[in-house]
Write a protein that binds this DNA or RNA. Structure first.
Lengths: 291, 291
DNA sequence: CATTATTACGAATAACGTAACGATG
DNA sequence: CATCGTTACGTTATTCGTAATAATG
């Protein structure tokens, strides 16, 4: 049961005339007859019957025509739908955000104010899905391979958020917090993964008393003084609560790289524009930039 | 854009895996790749893109899948729909009724009481449409060719309906009604055609003062005594009104044949049963039967 | 006898399968 | 190096078109 046969059938069902339909279809009459015959054989039902010199739909043929007509119309819409999808895609930006979420959504808000017709599809660390722009975080020296893709790296220090009264100098040593309660993000990738990796290198094992997969919750716990926690210097914004301060860590290597990647080949015009804006946006907020 | 290509595409879109899909489809992997490539070429859009070792739907591919999936499901229903139509047709009787309408519908009522699941499709003298049973009327000797099809003929006299006081004998001569007002059916086929033909043969020209395409209206006019009119002896039933009588016509040839035909080949079981009942029904009402 | 649908047969097109290749983790 | 997708090429199968045949009014 091929699509061409059904198109032929539909045409003949409308005109109830082989010769005329053959002309309109641009094929020879025998080809039409054969195609109809094949269809009848596959469906095991007579679709037309002779009525004098002409032919006429059988009841089965009428049933088939009722089924087929709307389907063929739907098929003819497919190329249009594809073209629309292709056109729409030019204004769609697909983002895979694994870090720096708040900065990214802020950038999106700014972008949409400038380009209202832009559409966004945002996944969180779902590497299966397609993405035009991706924001990840890696350890500075570590396995973070910048990849063959165009990428841009911003480095920032990882600080420790501690109660104000414990802040004695310009920086702190982790060893002083061997027994302190830690509040951490949950999960293995992103910021948590970087912190775990760095602690491992420094030979330090934080006493994690509370975890959450929401940075906002972690922020609140730290702000309430319930524990200390790692905190990126800038990208997460200032900590609320006046009795908590952010101090650099004296131990070496406590920093992270935020990597902004763009898909290799095909990404729409608006994705490129957004990428440029996102880089500028992050650069301004971070105050420092490295490639 | 062939149906097979779309089936292949649908399968691959679901698994996002060429090799597995090829196995499930029972074709070689290269054939799958080629089919997808052809489809992409026709639609002028990339449908899949490489994601590492595997492949992934592009946005256009997702749009196509959304369009195609329900259509393929609908196509798979076609054979079932045809089978249903074929089965249902066994209990459907298609009738083309050009004469003896009241008797036919009475027969249908009787038949349905016996076989409730039977369905009827009734057209009035629409020879284009398909019919299993056909009821026509022809002049006895005339061009009415009983056809190669199985047919059954019932002959009845055509009488004249006249006011009772004018009825002087057992029959009347048309010449006596040369100036009488006639009430006739409109149209050229059926009973009217037979009457016109017979009058022409008899060298008689009725003075038609009123025509209607509805036998019921004609019946009323005659019953009210507004004119005289031709009336089949039995098949239209008795005339209402006690001051009108039905008298035979002395002029020769005033009769009509009611022809019941059955379609040559394919008509369902119930159509055959109804045909038998209709013949018996008419035979009983007419009192006389000829083949 | 003119028109319409069907059958027969040769030719062209397109799909498939095997094998070799390229890419990727 | 093992797996997956792609390209190359020879083979097979299906479909189409021309011509001849049958049926119908």
């Amino acid at each position: 049961m091929e699509l061409l046969q059904l198109r032929y059938f539909h045409e003949v069902a409308q005109t109830q005339h082989m010769t005329n339909s053959a002309k309109r279809l641009g094929v020879a009459q025998p080809a039409l007859t054969q195609a109809i015959r094949r269809l009848e054989g596959e469906l095991d039902a007579k679709l037309f019957e002779r009525a004098g010199r002409n032919i006429r739909l059988t009841p089965c043929g009428e049933a088939l025509e009722a089924k087929v007509a709307p389907l063929l119309a739907a098929f003819d819409e497919i190329p249009l739908a594809i073209a629309q999808a292709k056109g729409q895609e030019r204004d769609t930006v697909r983002i895979d955000v694994e870090a720096a979420t708040s900065m990214t959504v802020d950038a999106i808000a700014v972008f949409r104010a400038t380009v209202p017709q832009a559409a966004f599809v945002i996944n969180q660390a779902n590497s299966e899905a397609r993405w035009d722009v991706r924001v990840r975080t890696v350890t500075p020296g570590g396995g973070g391979k910048p990849d063959a893709r165009t990428s841009q790296v911003f480095r920032e220090r990882i600080c420790l958020a501690i109660p104000k009264e414990q802040a004695k100098g310009k920086s702190v040593c982790l060893a002083d917090f061997a027994d302190a309660p830690f509040v951490c993000l949950a999960g293995t990738r992103g910021f948590r993964g970087v912190c775990d990796e760095l602690c491992l290198k420094a030979g330090f094992a934080p006493n994690v008393v509370f975890e959450s997969d929401s940075p906002d919750v972690v922020r609140k716990f730290i702000a309430l003084g319930l524990g200390v926690g790692f905190w990126p210097e800038r990208s997460w914004g200032a900590l609320e609560g006046s009795d908590v301060v952010l101090v650099p860590i004296a131990d070496p290597g406590f920093a992270r790289d935020i990597v902004v990647e763009t898909a290799k080949h095909p990404f729409g015009q608006k994705a490129a524009e957004f990428h440029a804006l996102l880089l500028e946006f992050i650069r301004r907020r971070m105050g420092e930039a490295d490639s």
